[in-house]
């Protein structure tokens, strides 16, 4: 997928914490009172692992397999892997598919234009709280200047904040997509210190900024790169969003925004 889908834009340093790597799982920070019982479970688990796997091999009536087996049918059928739309088709199909399930797609030339649009929507909808990912792209929307009366926060911009609660009360959340697939009408967002998963989940409205060069044809174009990225380089959360949160649980009537955002905008930038 070359340079069209660089999942990570350059991020500002967020939490100055030289000791902890960006990728240190949080389990390493538990205090020792916790560690004992977790250790115990861990030992049990490791002891059981061998029996568990041996039992599987036994049932399959052969010795344990230790080497990676040949996997001739990996991934989608070959004919699918060469299937690509041109840019105009991708935009058309993405828009159609995202819109059909209740999402909204708008084309913008610049982040400046996107900022103006978001400000206008915020006024129309009478938004009081906005939370945005802490990224150069969302900063370039200059919402703080455009909406002086709205409380706008950049995710994780300081540590003394209950960020989940801030996102939960927000009317609008603004995120940057790491990629998108036209065939399913799906945007992909990933988590990091400056990109909380809550930002695309908890606010009532979710606005996704999608640089047009990140729009692909197939879902596989978003998935397959994670195979070669290396396990330790995967973000904790990789989320594929195809429209507003929905349910038909009351009288089979479609309701949106049950848990996640009820209004989703993708702003195609470029």
């Amino acid at each position: 997928m070359s340079n069209t889908n660089q999942p990570f834009s350059a991020k500002p340093p967020v939490v100055p914490n030289p000791e902890s790597s960006h990728l240190t799982p949080d389990h390493e920070q538990h205090d020792s009172s916790q560690a004992d019982w977790l250790d115990e479970l861990e030992q049990k688990s490791k002891a059981k692992q061998q029996t568990f796997m041996n039992h599987i091999a036994d049932r399959l009536q052969r010795p344990r397999i230790q080497e990676a087996p040949k996997h001739p049918f990996r991934g989608a059928p070959e004919i699918w892997q060469d299937f690509n739309w041109n840019e105009a088709e991708k935009i058309e199909k993405f828009t159609k598919h995202f819109t059909e399930v209740g999402g909204n797609v708008l084309r913008m030339q610049t982040l400046e234009e996107a900022g103006a649009f978001i400000a206008e929507q915020s006024r129309l909808l009478n938004a009081q709280y906005i939370v945005r990912q802490q990224l150069p792209e969302t900063e370039a929307l200059t919402l703080e200047a455009r909406l002086p009366h709205v409380q706008i926060s950049a995710w994780n911009s300081h540590t003394e904040e209950a960020w989940k609660a801030r996102a939960a009360e927000a009317d609008i959340g603004i995120v940057l997509a790491d990629g998108a697939a036209a065939y399913t009408g799906t945007v992909m967002v990933t988590s990091s210190a400056s990109q909380g998963r809550s930002v695309s989940l908890l606010p009532t409205v979710c606005i996704v900024l999608l640089p047009i060069e990140r729009l692909q044809t197939r879902l596989g174009e978003l998935l397959i790169p994670w195979d070669s990225k290396g396990r330790e380089n995967l973000p904790a959360g990789i989320h594929f969003i195809s429209g507003p949160s929905r349910s038909s649980d009351i009288e089979n009537e479609l309701t949106i925004g049950v848990h996640g955002p009820g209004i989703v905008y993708t702003l195609l930038i470029g």
Partner: peptide, 29 residues
């Protein structure tokens, strides 16, 4: 559906610097 509204790939608990996601994650097989 072409795809469910959400598909999520979760790789481990939250990273130390993250401000959301589970601090501790268990998978029972």
């Amino acid at each position: 559906q072409r795809l469910t509204m959400y598909m999520s790939g979760i790789t481990g608990p939250k990273r130390t610097v993250d401000a959301d996601g589970p601090e501790e994650m268990h998978i029972i097989i």
